[in-house]
Amino acid sequence: MKITLPDWYDDLFEFECESKGCVLNLTVTVYGQELQFDFYDITRFIQTAKDEVERSDYYNTNNLVILDKVTRENIIGYLNSLNVKPEAQC
C-alpha cells in the first residue's frame, strides 16, 4: 500500500505526538487519496472527551482513531488496515 505522511512528520514530531497522546487533523495520502484523521491514545482521548463533555455537554469528531500509542508505526498500521483502492488511471 502506498502511504505518505506529511514531510514535517519527523522523529521529533513523532516523539511529541506520542508524549502528548494525540495528533489532530493529520492529513495522509493513501494511494493518492488525501485522508484526514485525529489520532489519540486512550488516556488522552478520555481526558479530552471528558473535558469537552463537561464544557459543552457533548463530544463530536470525525475520523477519530484511538491507538495504543500515537506513533508512526501505529498510524501506518491503522492505515494499512483500511480498504483504500488505488485511484483509477485515465
Score class of each variant (00 low, 15 high):
residue 31 Y to K: 02
residue 64 L to P: 15
residue 12 L to E: 04
residue 26 L to C: 14
residue 21 G to D: 11
residue 58 Y to S: 12
residue 14 E to S: 01
residue 29 T to I: 06
residue 45 F to N: 04
residue 54 E to A: 01
residue 55 R to Y: 07
residue 59 Y to C: 15
residue 58 Y to F: 15
residue 29 T to C: 10
residue 69 K to Y: 08
residue 86 P to A: 04
residue 3 I to P: 07
residue 21 G to C: 13
residue 45 F to H: 03
residue 14 E to L: 03
residue 85 K to V: 12
residue 9 Y to N: 02
residue 6 P to M: 04
residue 30 V to Q: 07
residue 32 G to Q: 02
residue 53 V to D: 04
residue 83 N to L: 09
residue 63 N to V: 10
residue 42 I to W: 06
residue 42 I to F: 12
residue 28 V to C: 07
residue 19 S to M: 07
residue 33 Q to V: 11
residue 24 L to V: 08
residue 18 E to V: 02
residue 13 F to L: 05
residue 13 F to V: 02
residue 72 R to V: 09
residue 4 T to Q: 10
residue 35 L to H: 03
residue 32 G to C: 06
residue 39 F to C: 04
residue 36 Q to V: 00
residue 39 F to I: 06
residue 88 A to L: 11
residue 64 L to W: 15
residue 55 R to K: 11
residue 72 R to D: 05
residue 89 Q to P: 07
residue 27 T to R: 02
residue 49 A to P: 02
residue 23 V to T: 05
residue 30 V to R: 04
residue 55 R to T: 10
residue 50 K to H: 01
residue 44 R to K: 09
residue 15 F to W: 01
residue 9 Y to L: 06
residue 55 R to H: 11
residue 22 C to S: 12
residue 12 L to R: 00
residue 75 I to P: 05
residue 10 D to L: 00
residue 52 E to P: 03
residue 30 V to E: 13
residue 60 N to G: 14
residue 82 L to S: 15
residue 9 Y to E: 04
residue 38 D to G: 03
residue 58 Y to Q: 10
residue 67 L to W: 07
residue 57 D to S: 15
residue 53 V to R: 02
residue 55 R to N: 11
residue 69 K to A: 12
residue 34 E to M: 00
residue 60 N to L: 11
residue 40 Y to A: 08
residue 80 N to E: 11
residue 77 G to E: 12
residue 16 E to L: 01
residue 66 I to R: 13
residue 5 L to M: 09
residue 34 E to P: 00
residue 42 I to S: 13
residue 16 E to C: 01
